[in-house]
Amino acid sequence: MSEFEQMYREVILDHYKMPRNHGILDPNDAVAEGQNPLCGDEVTVSVRFGEGDIIESVGFEGRGCAISQAATSMLTDLVKGRSAQEIAVMRKEELLDEIGIPLSPVRLKCALLGMGVLKVALHRSRGTPLPEEWGTSSGEISVN
């Protein structure tokens, strides 16, 4: 298998070109957006809950590299029907196994962007714990 085929597996390209659960849910119970400062990937994830904080539907939009968008698409399939509390502590390995390709540290950030954003959305509406790397306050500069 060539390097290309290893990374841009059929299933990755499939999710990239035909993302699942695409579009922001309206109405929704939770929404968050995030960027990957390394390459400018952007993802917005929205969630609607059923009974008992079960994720009934999830929808995302974004722009960015094939890995970031395909990974978010795969993530949305993985989380449906599971509870906010469970997904808030979902391990990254679960998604990475699904993606199933070797990723350098830089590309890992692309692959995990959607998952971080989803956890932020859950945190906002259900108070679940934030992923560590999103929990730190970075402060901001405002000018007139």
Binding site: F4, M7, L38, C39, R63, G64, C65, A66, I67, R107
Partner: peptide, 25 residues
């Protein structure tokens, strides 16, 4: 094609380029 994917494939061809916002958002 997203620049990150462009740079990735170019790397396999032995060509190093930069993909990103180049610190100029």
């Amino acid at each position: 094609v997203h620049p990150h994917d462009v740079a990735q494939i170019l790397d396999w061809e032995g060509v190093a380029v930069r993909a990103g916002h180049h610190c100029t958002q």
